[in-house]
Design a protein around this nucleic acid. Structure first.
Length: 647
DNA sequence: ATAGGGTTAG
């Protein structure tokens, strides 16, 4: 005869150690055999399946439904599990099920969990219905329920409702205050959040971290750093990560690097968030060597198991132009690949022009059971347009709408315009724009203007520019592009007219910059600058390189595609000669040890002359150059470029 | 046996 009082705690201690559904099922089978499946044990089983391990919610659901009279704990736990799953909607159905088919009244736990689901669904109508039920049960002023209500309304964008709930709470504690401050920040009211922060009776570290993130999010960077972060008496790893991520999002690479190095110097252990943040900086800036150092650190720390860290690493390698390392990270990723992992891999391959491989990875993603979302399809369409796969592009665009039910956004339409335009079918691109169900924005028209530039279609370019000057008259890039199209067509009078109108409107060209990493330090170059030791070194080397290109490569500067055509021929050549990517290249070659790869990141599109120079250099100097420009990667090797001169 | 507030990659 088995004594349940002894077997039960034993089963529960075994259950605690179960990491997957298979082992939970074994324990469950044992429990059934020994006949101890009471409410307590079943409740624990449900808790384990719904909350503690992943991919077992369906089992938790069936456990509840096979139990004669499920208690409130079982229902609450299942509601909780669904609220943070991919299907928060099932929280609501479980809540309704609890009310309809059981004798249990919803308690403060039920409301806290089900409101979380409403928040995750961003469903204001659901939220307000649950709110009215909470009032019915007298739970709307309950500390936990009230706090979740505040968060829910904030998530749905109803700051006034959040405020009303907060004001009705009897004795809001620090957590409730923090929720209310977060609510203001969610709704972009920094001053409101600040006012509340100052009114708080007691603050802890978390309150300060909330405000810190708020200041960073809304661009008050220097205030956040000097007058807030530095003044915080207590800082934890979240404070540091918040700063690093904030600077990264705002494009302040130096500040982010400095803070990361500083935190290391202080002996602080970096967590997965600061690492993903600093890796994102490496990705944006093209800091390959620094990224490799971080990779080594990640391998040694326990962080190698975290999916987000691997995704950031994958993106770093891919944006630094090392697709082999990116693929290696992707292949060897411990743990499950998320939708972000797959999308990042597709985007990385697409950027390098490996359209077919990118599409293959996309199909593997579908086979693995992960459903692509809108961002995945941006990468897929981008892969098609950059590899000239027009039919594929058409197919995936309709697959996205019809098979996956994803509504196209401006970015998807932009990819399609790019797909047709880049391939030379300008008429199709134009028709596509006029037939879009949403009003095309400036970016869409600008894409067509870019295609006009590639294919030298002056008439269409003029028409597009007319539309653009109404939509976004202050974009200097459009004027520059149009004047380039005129220049290539030899219409110098029109070039001058555009130049003059730009001058009258006080529009200046976005300065081009390029960055290159040498010995884990990033150096940036701006066209035409002449000032310090670094640029002196670059100029000196550039002179030597160009001389050799003229002698050994028969090089003659190509100035037609240049942006400076209203100046004298000789000056033109000089201006093109000092484009930032050439300076970065020269500096890299000056500092490079044998057999290295030159990696350059540029903020604008590479110009035609620089492209030619890079090809020649890769041939004559036997060098590999990886250049990331605004739209894609160019890998120069043996005198050829991976873009096949089409960009 | 159950909860609410802070930083996270495409």
């Amino acid at each position: 005869m088995v004594n349940g009082n002894i077997v039960e705690p034993l089963c529960l201690s075994v259950l605690k150690r179960c990491k997957n559904l298979r082992s939970v099922k074994q324990v469950h089978a044992h429990i059934v055999k020994t006949g101890i499946s009471d409410a307590f044990v079943t409740g624990n089983l449900i808790l384990h399946c719904a909350v503690l391990i992943s991919d077992a919610l369906h089992y938790a659901h069936s456990l509840l439904h096979h139990f004669p009279n499920p208690d409130a704990f079982m229902y609450n736990t299942l509601i909780r599990g669904f609220s943070d799953s991919d299907h928060p909607y099932h929280s609501l159905t479980t809540f309704i099920d609890m009310r309809r088919n059981s004798d249990n009244s919803p308690d403060s736990f039920s409301f806290a969990f089900v409101l979380k689901a409403a928040a995750n669904l961003r469903s204001y109508t659901t939220g307000i219905q649950l709110h009215s039920q909470a009032i019915f049960y007298g739970l709307d002023t309950h500390l936990y329920v009230g706090t979740t209500l505040v968060s829910m309304y904030a998530e749905c964008g109803w700051i006034s409702h959040a405020g009303k709930v907060f004001d009705k709470m009897f004795e809001p504690n620090i957590v409730a205050w923090n929720a209310m401050i977060t609510a203001y920040l969610r709704c972009c009211d920094v001053r409101g959040a600040e006012k509340l922060y100052k009114q708080m009776p007691v603050r802890d570290l978390i309150s300060s971290n909330i405000m810190l993130a708020g200041y960073m999010k809304f661009g008050e960077l220097q205030f956040a750093k000097k007058l807030f972060f530095h003044e915080m008496r207590l800082k934890d790893d979240v404070s540091w990560s918040t700063m690093i991520v904030g600077f990264s999002h705002n494009g302040c690479f130096d500040e982010a690097f400095d803070l990361f190095v500083e935190s290391q110097r202080l002996g602080l252990r970096s967590n997965e968030v600061s690492l993903t943040g600093i890796l994102s900086v490496c990705a944006q800036a093209g800091a390959f060597e620094f990224g490799k150092v971080l990779h080594g650190y990640i391998e040694k720390s326990g962080l190698v198991w975290i999916t987000s860290v691997n995704n950031a690493l994958l993106d770093t390698y891919s944006k630094c132009g090392n697709i082999n390392m990116a693929q290696l990270v992707f292949k060897r990723m411990p743990g499950k690949k998320s939708i972000v992992s797959w999308t990042t891999m597709v985007a990385g391959l697409a950027m390098q022009g490996y359209g077919e491989v990118a599409l293959k990875v996309f199909h593997q993603m579908e086979e693995s059971g992960i459903k692509p979302d809108g961002i995945t399809f941006i990468s897929v369409l981008y892969a098609c347009s950059h590899a000239g796969l027009i039919d594929h592009g058409d197919r995936y665009f309709s697959m996205m709408k019809n098979h996956y039910g994803i509504e196209p956004t401006f970015e998807h339409y932009g990819c399609m315009v790019d797909l047709y335009g880049r391939a030379g079918d300008l008429q199709k691109a134009y028709n596509f724009i006029t037939q879009m169900p949403i009003k095309p924005n400036a970016v869409i028209w600008r894409t067509l203007l870019g295609a006009c530039s590639i294919h030298g279609n002056v008439d269409l370019a003029e028409e597009v520019q007319k539309t653009l000057s109404e939509l976004d008259p202050n974009d200097s890039g459009d004027h520059v592009l149009l004047s380039n199209i005129y220049a290539v067509a030899g219409k110098w009078k029109d070039v001058l007219t555009v130049r003059k109108s730009m001058h009258c409107q006080r529009l200046t060209k976005t300065p081009g910059w390029s960055m290159i990493e040498v010995d884990k330090v990033m150096y940036s170059f701006v066209a035409g600058e002449k000032q310090n030791e670094v640029t002196d070194e670059a100029y000196k080397k550039l002179g030597e390189i160009m001389l050799r290109l003229r002698v050994d490569g028969g090089y003659v500067a190509e100035v037609n595609g240049s942006v400076l055509h209203d100046i004298e021929e000789e000056e033109k050549e000089d201006a093109v000669a000092t484009h930032s990517e050439k300076l970065a290249l020269a500096f890299g070659m000056s500092r490079l040890c044998d057999g290295g790869v030159i990696r350059i990141v540029k903020n604008l599109r590479v110009c035609k002359d620089c492209h030619t120079v890079m090809k020649l250099v890769s041939d004559i100097f036997r060098l590999e150059i990886v250049l990331r420009d605004r739209s894609r990667f160019h890998c120069f090797k043996d005198g050829c470029c991976s873009c096949r001169d089409y960009w």
